[in-house]
Design a protein around this nucleic acid. Structure first.
Length: 901
RNA sequence: GGGCUAUUAGCUCAGUUGGUUAGAGCGCUUCCUUGACAUGGAAGAGGUCAGUGGUCCGAAUCCACUAUAGCCCACCA
């Protein structure tokens, strides 16, 4: 075995082996399935820390379940990411001086597919670096043939059920991209804007005179004066006494002379602005709703590229919106309508893609009615059929689901699933929705009674569907739906879904709805929500801030195992994870530790090579400092992972391997009286530990398992059984009993106690000391030699238990160990230290006594707790007695060793 | 405005249904290069568990309020 572990070589070698040998792939059989679908990353994406966290958690669960013997599927794939991908290709086109319109739809789409073939594999190759055990043979793409078929079927079915409709709606509109970004795709940015206070003269109470302020008017504050020509009312709060008399009156819309009503609506905030709002239903989402409630007209005064149209008035028609704002403000001022201007800081929505200020625009869009879909999805979580882990996320889920809005699913893009709606060229009002053009044609023929219609007589809707419209089908479209495949039957519903909190709404909730609606069963049983990876200062990682860590760089520097293990160890499902580079050293160091422990085992085995196996079962084999029955990690790992406590699991195996095996047992093996037996046990424990560690650190465990000969060529640790605790039979075979364990453990405790005493009294390591042990254990005396060595003692004497020696001591299960300090310490300093120690102990004793004096404590607390409290009290009292004696001796300066017996 | 969460060691965080003198990693102090490992080993310092009040024999844990921080949704015309 090489002195140093070559992670890069091992990781490349083993991943290739696993993938080529189909270790990630299983087919439906009679076993219990365990299935997970990966949250598909954008095909344009590159691997970031969020993926690393998300996928590490999944891979740990998947590898663990696979080793448990479950038929395991982890299905990978990518998302076609409509706007992001289109954007990438458009940017490339721009370099050639072209726009997508220059190519035309068909040619452009060819370009995108070409881009996908060339670069779309980036992230899936990067995922392999992490060691993901995803079944690449089943890799899917949201825009592949099968997923596209599912999308068309779903759209058609929902349409037939009346759950998809086309409606007038106010949507966000990016005038530059010509798209309708969803609310969640907007970036709200602080804006230093203005409040223009505009007077709307009240009809019948005054007339305006040019150049003079109006006397009777209502004053409206607006940040968007350019939308004024679209106003169809002004509104006040119904509870606002100041303006109650105005409701029902009519005011004149400045610059237009149009008369518009004063209405009252709860939407208006009395405290904000003047308490009077202009209502522009075609250009503001809230105004749109107000307009609907009051039956107001919707006057669209803008074109798609944010220029004013003829309805804005002759003067403004053709102006850009900002130009128009300027012109209108000037005209309002000139006309005496502008009262004053105020600075105001507000938030303005920007297109996340091109950063253009987003406009609210009235348009025809396709929608999904969400309420009927949401109801069963709420019920499935309420009933416990589907569980959130941690449970509290269900509250957020309910909150959103219960206030759900219809989902605008049409997008004015080219890259995506085209809406399967076809219009008659001769009459665009007639729409036929069908999975294919042929079926639509058939429907059209039937509806019109015109058998001569051809496909050329139909226009397909130019828009495509929101990316989420394919993602929400992911758990079943990837398994073959709408075909009734074996995979679908066997692996659906999937077991766990692992994702971050930020897509509970967009993705998780919608998958719930689609799964229940189309499959009649929720798509997964458990929704595991983890936090977001943040930079060390708690801010979001972003490239622009330069505070992001690149997982590929970390893999390069520390290894994939190191990255995975560190992530598992520092990540709590409960909250976000703050990371910095140093944290990944934990995993790197652990990898090294495992490697070195393996080398130690091989060296020890070389030493005992000639000893035969039979010796293991000799009584000596019993004297091992391990109680195999209380080998916690073996028993606990399954329980911990059942509860998705990844961090606890990582900590448990880490502590077990490092503290128990390396710091404890390995040190013992070095001086073991029966090395052959100890090494054999170490080998057995090591093999179990490797399997325990494998889900966290797949590569180093595989490599070490082969180096140590646990596996033959062609075998893999991936498919070995996940270890359980030692059985009684195994323990009997090792000759391990509780009593032996207790004794050896006590001995170790004694050694630790002497080390501590030496440190307390600052005894240099080179100085050999005299040790006395007060014990009645007959076996103890036989250990004098090994104790001497471990304690760096000149001599180890044994006296009867209870013997009272005025020397520094520690109480252990082995007995009381005394350290002779003759001529070794500064007496004055020591007296002071002892005084401090006594004060501390007095506090403990006082609280312990109070506790034990409390009848209720004795009556109610668990027996073990009470017993332990008693034991501690007695022990502390004993300690105090000893310290007091010692203190006296120090104080008198006559400390001197007195041997009893 | 609506919803959710957090506050424990210098830092990042554990602490499962209330129950031993509240733990880990990093950092810090002292010591150690005797062949598994200095990416290491041994020992140690460091916390009135944000505050106040309550329930209980017993509270970091449950309840109420306060303070501070953060997240999500909606959003100021």
């Amino acid at each position: 075995m090489d002195k140093h572990y070559d992670a890069k070589a091992a990781e490349a070698k083993w991943y290739k082996f696993w993938e080529e040998n189909g270790c990630f792939h299983q087919d439906p059989d009679g076993r219990e399935p365990y299935s997970v679908v990966i949250p598909p990353p954008n095909v344009t994406g590159i691997l970031h820390m969020g993926h690393a966290l998300n996928q590490t958690i999944q891979d740990i669960l998947v590898r663990w379940r696979r080793m448990q013997g479950r038929n395991t599927l982890w299905l990978p794939g990518t998302d076609h990411a409509g706007i992001a991908t289109q954007n990438v290709v458009e940017k490339a086109l721009k370099k050639e001086g072209k726009r997508r319109q220059d190519l035309g739809r068909e040619k452009f789409l060819e370009r995108v597919w070409e881009w996908k073939r060339q670069y779309g594999g980036t992230i899936v190759h990067q995922q392999r670096m992490l060691g993901n055990s995803t079944d690449w043979r089943r890799e899917r793409f949201t825009f592949d043939e099968g997923c596209s078929r599912a999308v068309a079927k779903v759209f058609t079915q929902l349409y037939d059920e009346g759950l998809v409709y086309k409606g007038n709606y106010i949507v966000n509109w990016c005038p530059r991209c010509g798209t309708a970004p969803a609310n969640d795709e907007l970036e709200h940015e602080p804006n230093h804007g203005h409040f223009w206070y505009v007077r709307y003269p009240v009809v019948g109470r005054a007339t305006g005179v040019k150049g003079e302020p109006y006397k009777d008017y209502v004053m409206v504050a607006t940040t968007r004066p350019e939308t004024l020509p679209g106003d169809t009312a002004v509104a006040v709060n119904p509870k606002d006494d100041r303006y109650a008399h105005l409701v029902g009156k009519t005011v004149i819309l400045p610059l237009t002379g149009r008369e518009i009503p004063v209405i009252s609506d709860d939407y208006v905030d009395r405290e904000f602005g003047t308490g009077i709002v202009k209502i522009t239903p075609a250009h503001d989402p809230n105004d749109f709703l107000v307009g609907k409630r009051h039956g107001l007209a919707e006057i669209n005064i803008m074109t798609d590229d944010a220029h004013m149209n003829e309805l804005a008035g002759e003067k403004y028609c053709g102006m850009d919106r900002w130009e128009c704002r300027k012109a209108i403000v000037e005209d309002l001022d000139a006309g005496g309508f502008l009262d004053h201007i105020e600075d105001i800081d507000n938030q303005v929505g920007h297109c996340y893609r091109c950063h253009e200020t987003v406009e609210s625009r009235l348009s025809k869009q396709w929608f999904v009615k969400m309420k009927p879909l949401a109801e069963p999805a709420i019920a499935a979580v309420k009933s416990g059929e589907v569980k959130f882990v941690p449970e509290r996320w269900s509250k957020i889920y309910f909150n959103w689901m219960e206030n759900i809005q219809d989902w605008c699913i049409s997008r004015q893009l080219w890259w995506g699933h085209r809406i399967p709606a076809y219009y008659l060229k001769s009459d665009a009002e007639q729409v036929f929705v069908a999975e294919t053009a042929e079926e639509a044609l058939a429907k059209a023929k039937k509806a019109t009674g015109n058998a001569a219609l051809t496909i050329a007589d139909l226009d397909q809707d130019p828009d495509v569907l929101d990316t989420w419209f394919s993602s929400w089908l992911w758990p079943f479209s990837t398994l073959g739906w709408p075909e009734k495949t074996k995979d679908l039957e066997y692996y659906y519903p999937t077991t766990d879904l692992v994702t971050a909190q930020d897509i509970i709404f967009f993705w998780v909730a919608r998958m719930m709805m689609a799964g229940i609606h189309f499959m009649k069963k929720p798509p997964f049983r458990n929704i595991v929500i983890h936090g977001i990876v943040r930079a060390a200062d708690g801010s979001k990682m972003s490239k622009s801030k330069g505070n992001s860590l690149d997982p590929l760089e970390l893999i390069d520097q520390y290894s994939a195992d190191a990255l995975r293990f560190s992530i598992a160890l520092i990540t709590s499902l409960e909250c976000d994870t703050k990371v910095n580079k140093e944290k990944f050293e934990i995993g790197r160091n652990f990898t090294t530790k495992i490697w070195n422990a393996a080398r130690f085992l091989l060296m020890q085995e070389a030493e005992v090579e000639k000893l035969n196996v039979e010796k293991l079962k000799s009584p000596d084999a019993a004297a091992q400092p391990f109680n195999l029955s209380t080998f916690q990690p073996f028993n606990l790992s399954n329980e911990i992972l059942e509860a998705y406590r990844i961090q606890d699991g990582a900590l448990a195996v880490y502590d077990f391997f490092w503290t128990q095996i390396c710091d404890g047992y390995v040190e013992y093996v070095k001086d073991s009286p029966n090395k052959a037996a100890s090494v054999a046990i170490l080998r057995d424990v090591f093999w179990k530990a490797l399997r325990l560690l494998h889900p966290y650190m797949p590569f180093v465990t595989e490599e070490v398992a082969h180096q140590l000969g646990f596996l033959k060529e062609g075998e893999t640790i991936m498919l070995q059984e996940f270890p359980k605790g030692y059985t009684d039979a195994e323990k009997a075979a090792w000759g391990v009993t509780e009593g032996n364990y207790e004794f050896v453990n006590a001995k170790r405790e004694a050694i630790t106690a002497i080390r501590a005493l030496r440190a307390e009294y600052k005894v240099p390591p080179a100085t050999f000391v005299k040790v006395t042990v007060a014990t009645d254990d007959a076996k103890a005396a036989a250990e004098a030699d090994s104790l001497k060595k471990a304690m760096r003692a000149e001599s180890v004497d044994f006296v009867a238990a209870g013997s009272d020696l005025a020397m520094p001591s520690k109480i252990t299960k082995f007995g009381t160990v005394y350290l002779s300090l003759e001529g070794l310490v500064d007496k004055a300093a020591e007296a002071k230290r002892i005084a401090g120690e006594l004060a501390k102990l007095a506090g403990f004793i006082k609280s312990s006594e109070a506790k034990l004096a409390n009848e209720n404590f004795v009556a109610h607390a668990p027996e073990a707790v009470v017993a332990e409290a008693r034991r501690k009290l007695a022990e502390n009292k004993e300690k105090v007695a000893q310290l007091e004696k010692l203190a006296k001796l120090f104080a008198r300066g006559i400390y001197k060793e007195r041997k009893m017996k």
